[in-house]
Simulated assay, not measured.
Amino acid sequence: MRRSISVLLTTVLVFAATLPAAAQSQTAPTSFNPYVAKQPSTNQLNPFNLATLAYQGYFKDQGILSNGALLDAIASGTIAAQDIIQAAVKANRLSEQTLSDRGYRHHLEEQLQGFTAD
């Protein structure tokens, strides 16, 4: 009986000692990741989602047309990917750093071309 209590107490103590360490190890990597520390407070949309939101009219208040009018404006060159990125920044849907991100702009251009492809 004494041995059972001793084993039980040892198990409980070991479990209690390792539980906080295990919980801390799950959150520790994000606190040391410099990218996470620099994340803007706004949500970062991927280019596909941004193009979809623009098409659906989420940036009308920022002067971006929606639906077929947006497709016509893209095809004619009246609206470019950079215009949509600027509108999303004004609407607090993207961080200002996205304005200078060529890769992001390129992927958005590809999405918009996909919308206007026949």
Rank of each mutant, 00 (worst) to 15 (best):
Ala17Gly: 13
Leu19Ala: 10
Leu19Phe: 13
Leu19Gly: 10
Pro20Gly: 05
Ala22Thr: 08
Gln24His: 08
Gln24Thr: 04
Ser25His: 11
Gln26Ile: 11
Pro29Phe: 00
Thr30Ile: 04
Thr30Glu: 13
Ser31Gln: 12
Pro34Cys: 01
Tyr35Val: 06
Tyr35Leu: 08
Pro40Glu: 01
Ser41Ile: 08
Thr42Asn: 13
Thr42Leu: 09
Asn43Asp: 11
Leu45Asp: 00
Leu45His: 03
Asn46Gln: 07
Pro47Lys: 03
Pro47Tyr: 04
Pro47Arg: 02
Pro47Leu: 05
Phe48Asn: 05
Asn49Val: 14
Leu50Arg: 00
Thr52His: 03
Leu53Asn: 07
Leu53Ala: 04
Ala54Lys: 00
Tyr55Met: 09
Tyr55Cys: 08
Gln56Pro: 01
Gly57Leu: 01
Tyr58Pro: 00
Phe59Ser: 00
Phe59Arg: 00
Asp61Glu: 13
Asp61Cys: 12
Gln62Val: 03
Gly63Phe: 03
Gly63Ser: 14
Ile64Pro: 01
Ser66Pro: 08
Ala69Val: 06
Leu71Phe: 06
Ala73Cys: 11
Ala73Met: 10
Ile74Trp: 01
Gly77Val: 05
Ile79Glu: 00
Ala80Val: 13
Gln82Met: 10
Asp83Arg: 05
Ile84Asp: 02
Gln86Phe: 10
Gln86Met: 13
Ala87Leu: 14
Lys90Glu: 07
Lys90His: 07
Arg93Gln: 14
Ser95Glu: 10
Gln97Cys: 11
Thr98Trp: 04
Thr98Gly: 04
Thr98Glu: 03
Leu99Ser: 14
Ser100Asn: 13
Asp101Ala: 03
Asp101Ile: 09
Asp101His: 14
Asp101Leu: 08
Gly103Lys: 06
Arg105Val: 12
His106Asp: 08
His106Val: 09
Glu109Asp: 11
Glu110Ile: 13
Gln111Glu: 11
Leu112Arg: 00
Leu112Tyr: 03
